[in-house]
Measured scan of single mutants.
Amino acid sequence: TIEDAIKKLLKLAQKGQPYTFGDFTVTSEEEAKKLAKWLKKQL
């Protein structure tokens, strides 16, 4: 689910690992949080 993807994304971001989700490449926890907010709006 999208919720699971968001959780995984935040965990990876906390470890400092870049994470690619579709067109987004997230390289920081701050970016992960922005992406998570955006994804929730898409639901």
Rank of each mutant, 00 (worst) to 15 (best):
K40Q: 12
P18I: 12
L39V: 02
Q42K: 08
W38T: 01
A32G: 02
D23V: 14
K40N: 04
Y19K: 02
Q42I: 11
Q17P: 15
E29S: 05
W38E: 00
E29N: 06
K41V: 05
P18A: 05
I6A: 01
W38D: 00
V26N: 04
K7G: 03
K34H: 06
A36P: 00
F21D: 02
I6H: 01
E3T: 07
L12G: 02
S28P: 04
A36H: 05
F24Q: 03
L9I: 06
E31S: 10
T27S: 06
L35V: 02
A36Y: 14
P18F: 11
E30V: 09
L12A: 11
T27A: 06
G16T: 07
T1D: 08
Q42F: 13
A32I: 05
P18E: 07
E30N: 08
Q17G: 12
K41H: 08
I2W: 13
Y19A: 08
L10A: 02
A32T: 06
A32D: 01
T25F: 13
K34M: 08
K37C: 14
L12N: 03
T27H: 03
A36I: 14
K37W: 11
D4Y: 09
A13S: 05
Q42S: 07
E31A: 11
I2L: 08
K8G: 03
L12P: 01
K11H: 10
D23G: 12
A5P: 01
Q14W: 15
L35G: 00
T1G: 05
E31W: 14
L43K: 03
K40Y: 14
K33H: 10
E31T: 07
G16D: 08
A36L: 14
P18L: 11
Q42M: 13
L35N: 00
K41M: 12
A5E: 08
G22Q: 08
K15N: 10
K40W: 15
L12T: 03
G16K: 03
Q42D: 01
D23M: 15
I6N: 00
I6G: 00
D4A: 12
V26S: 02
I2V: 09
L10E: 01
E31P: 02
E30K: 09
F21I: 05
L12F: 12
T25N: 06
Q14T: 09
K34T: 05
L39E: 00
K34Y: 07
K15E: 10
L39M: 04
Q17H: 11
Q14L: 14
G16Y: 14
G16L: 13
E3P: 09
E29D: 06
K7P: 00
A32Y: 05
L9G: 00
K34W: 12
A13D: 02
A32R: 03
L9Y: 03
Q17D: 09
E31G: 04
L39T: 00
Q42V: 13
D23K: 10
V26W: 06
F21C: 15
T25P: 03
K34D: 04
K8M: 14
S28V: 09
A32P: 01
E29M: 14
A36Q: 03
I6L: 11
